[in-house]
Every structure is written in structure tokens, then in C-alpha cells.
Nucleic acid binder design. Sequence first.
DNA 1: GCCTATTACTTCGGATACAAAGCAAATAGG
DNA 2: CCTATTTGCTTTGTATCCGAAGTAATAGGC
Lengths: 147, 147
Amino acid sequence: MAIARPVDRRLFFFFDRAHTQMAKAADNFLSTRSGVSTAQAAVLIYLGYNDNCRLSDLAEGTGRKNSAVTGLISRMEKDDLVQRHGQLTDRRSKSVSLTGKGWALRDDVMNDFRDFNDRLIKGMSDSEVETVLKFLTLGPENAKSAS
Amino acid sequence: MAIARPVDRRLFFFFDRAHTQMAKAADNFLSTRSGVSTAQAAVLIYLGYNDNCRLSDLAEGTGRKNSAVTGLISRMEKDDLVQRHGQLTDRRSKSVSLTGKGWALRDDVMNDFRDFNDRLIKGMSDSEVETVLKFLTLGPENAKSAS
DNA sequence: GCCTATTACTTCGGATACAAAGCAAATAGG
DNA sequence: CCTATTTGCTTTGTATCCGAAGTAATAGGC
């Protein structure tokens, strides 16, 4: 029977506000460098590890819904960063791969994010960072649980 | 000279994915109860503590830009949750206050979020939660710092 | 070989966000 | 008192996101 922890009441709002602000900062950070949005950056990173994967896998891997990925990939295709390919084995599905331009940009983005992430944890110990990562993994699981 | 911590590379992406999923879970959670979005819920909570504040204060308090708040408040005004008032002292600015319906809904939302937040930290100790809150406060500050 | 269910992706509508530009009111400087 | 700057909010355009509905292709049951 834990007694009330008043700060808990606003946990999600702190989280939401922190996300809004970090996302904006990340967008600004990237736009002055590799010049890509964080949503698109996430795609570049993921595809680097899973090139030519299906759209659904990409959605799963980046935590988005298929409908969000459709638009995202369409915009990136227009910018010549990725390409869609129809599948012979299953003509419903399409795979996505990085273009040469996409691969080059991915390298920049990787470096940008290394710097950006380093900045985020300034003033925190390794074990504190571990705790944060634990929350970022556990939280969504807990959130989804029924009731 | 800390050695490389490979997990750091993906910190922001973990954070972003966690936010996407928690926000969706929160939206689902709320929609089956008080029936309001998390963005609007944040406004209700904030106004409960700062009723009749200026739009800019609301933007500041919820971590959004003025232009985002304009649309948000317009939608809420249409639903009769809040009201805009012109200011006599400074006719540029407008204040926002909760309607009766807004106050009632806020009570529901407060209860919903108490449950939701409790759920998020399931399996974490008090000190771990403190560490998470530290990150949620420090992170945005660090992110904004120049260079 | 059909009929139905499932799966993969797209489309559409609505909410939310920012940035940049616009407008009106207050303030500062001369 | 008049102009220039600042401030507060809104408008506009683009990027995201989701959920629900639509389309096409595969898979399963008979």
C-alpha cells in the first residue's frame, strides 16, 4: 500500500512535454545539419540495419502504424532517399530500400544522433541512464495492459 | 573520456517510440472514459491550477507554441470546455477559463490520469521514478543548449 | 475450383505540431 | 505626438500521427 506520490499525477504530462521539446530540439538540430526530420531519420537508421524490409516491418520497427508509414515513405521517395519495390513472392507487399543518397544521408544522421543523444544524458550516470531506458521499455508495456 | 555506450545511440529513438505508444495508450484510455484527447486533457489540468490565464501562459505551461494553442483552444471552445475572454488592460491578449462542463470533465481526467500514471511506473521503485523525472526535466534543457 | 477470412498497403478525415507571415495593440524613442 | 519596435494572437502551409474504410492479393475450408 504505497502512500500517494503526488508527483506521479503529472508523470505523463512531464513526459509529453519533454517529448514535445526534445523532438523540436532534435528537429532543429538535424535541420541545421543533415537536413531531415526525426521521423525520416528514424527510417534511415532502421533501414540501414534492415534494408529492403517490408513496409509493415518498418512500421513495427519504428513504432508507427502502416498508414503513417505510407505517407512518410512517399515523402522520402519524392526526395529520392528510399525506393519502393514490389515483391514477386507476395504481390500485396512492398519492400523499401535506401538509395545512394539515402545511405549517404544516413551516415550523417548517425553522427548527428550520437552527438544529440550524448547531450541528452549530460549530468546523468550510467546507472541512471539504464533506469531511464528501463522506463522507456517498461512504460509502453504497462500502458497497454488491459483494464 | 567515457568509453562508448552503444545503447546511447538509440536513446532518442527509444524515447520517441515510447512516447508514440504511451500517447496512443493514453488516448485510448481516456477516450473510453472521459472522452478527451491527451492534448486537451493537459489543457484542462493546467487551467485547473491557473484558471483564466493568458493564452501565452498556457502555451508555456504545456510546452507548446502559441500557434498550436490557438487551434487547440478553438477546438475546445467549440466543445464548450473553455472560453476565451478579451482583456481590458491589454487588448492584444486573451485569457482562457474553464466552463462548468470543463471543470466537471477535469475531475474525471484527473482520476483517469492518476490510474494511468500509476500503471506506467509499475515495477519501478520510488528512486527510479525520481531518476526518470530528472531525465524528463534535464533532457529538454540539455537538448536546447547551443552548438 | 470457389467462397470467405486474413493480410498488406493506401486513402481519407481529423487532431496535433511547428515555422513563418500577418495583424492589431502596446510601448519606446525622439 | 509620431514612428519604429515589440508583443500577443491568428492564419497558412507542411509534416506527422491515428483510426477507419477501401482495395488487392494470398490463404484456408470445403
